[in-house]
Amino acid sequence: MRRQRLKLLALIAIFAVPMIVAWAMVEWRIGIPEQRTAHGELAPEVPGLAEWPLDGGRDALKPGDWVLAFDCSRDCEMLADQWWRLHRALGREAPRVSRLRIGGEGPALPGESLAQWARTPDWQTPGRLWVLDPRGEVVLTYTGEVEARDVLDDVNRLLRMNRDNPGASELEVGQR
Results as ranks from 00 to 15, higher is better:
93 E>P: 06
80 A>N: 14
144 G>T: 09
74 R>C: 04
141 T>N: 05
133 D>T: 06
126 P>M: 07
133 D>Y: 06
87 H>G: 05
53 P>R: 04
79 L>H: 12
128 R>C: 00
45 E>D: 15
66 W>H: 10
39 H>M: 09
126 P>E: 13
129 L>W: 00
107 P>R: 09
88 R>E: 14
54 L>S: 03
61 L>M: 08
139 V>Q: 12
67 V>A: 11
106 G>M: 12
90 L>F: 12
138 V>Q: 05
41 E>I: 03
71 D>S: 13
50 A>C: 03
144 G>R: 13
113 S>Y: 03
140 L>G: 00
57 G>T: 05
124 Q>I: 10
63 P>T: 11
115 A>I: 09
74 R>T: 15
135 R>H: 07
102 I>F: 01
55 D>K: 11
138 V>H: 03
102 I>D: 00
58 R>N: 00
68 L>I: 15
82 Q>H: 11
44 P>T: 04
76 C>L: 02
64 G>T: 08
40 G>N: 00
80 A>G: 12
116 Q>P: 00
76 C>I: 02
111 G>H: 15
76 C>S: 12
113 S>M: 02
46 V>S: 10
137 E>N: 11
39 H>K: 09
147 E>C: 00
115 A>R: 10
70 F>R: 00
56 G>A: 15
131 V>T: 06
48 G>M: 06
134 P>Q: 02
146 V>I: 15
41 E>Y: 04
143 T>R: 14
103 G>S: 06
123 W>P: 03
119 R>G: 13
88 R>S: 07
57 G>N: 08
121 P>L: 09
52 W>K: 02
117 W>I: 07
77 E>S: 12
113 S>L: 01
117 W>V: 07
139 V>R: 13
85 R>A: 13
130 W>T: 02
72 C>T: 13
143 T>F: 05
48 G>L: 02
78 M>L: 14
64 G>R: 07
127 G>Y: 03
141 T>C: 03
80 A>E: 14
127 G>A: 07
59 D>V: 07
139 V>S: 07
56 G>M: 12
77 E>V: 11
87 H>I: 01
65 D>R: 12
67 V>H: 09
107 P>K: 08
95 P>Y: 08
114 L>T: 14
109 L>P: 01
66 W>G: 11
108 A>S: 11
98 S>V: 02
137 E>Q: 09
108 A>W: 02
79 L>W: 05
138 V>C: 10
112 E>H: 03
135 R>T: 10
46 V>N: 09
106 G>K: 10
85 R>S: 08
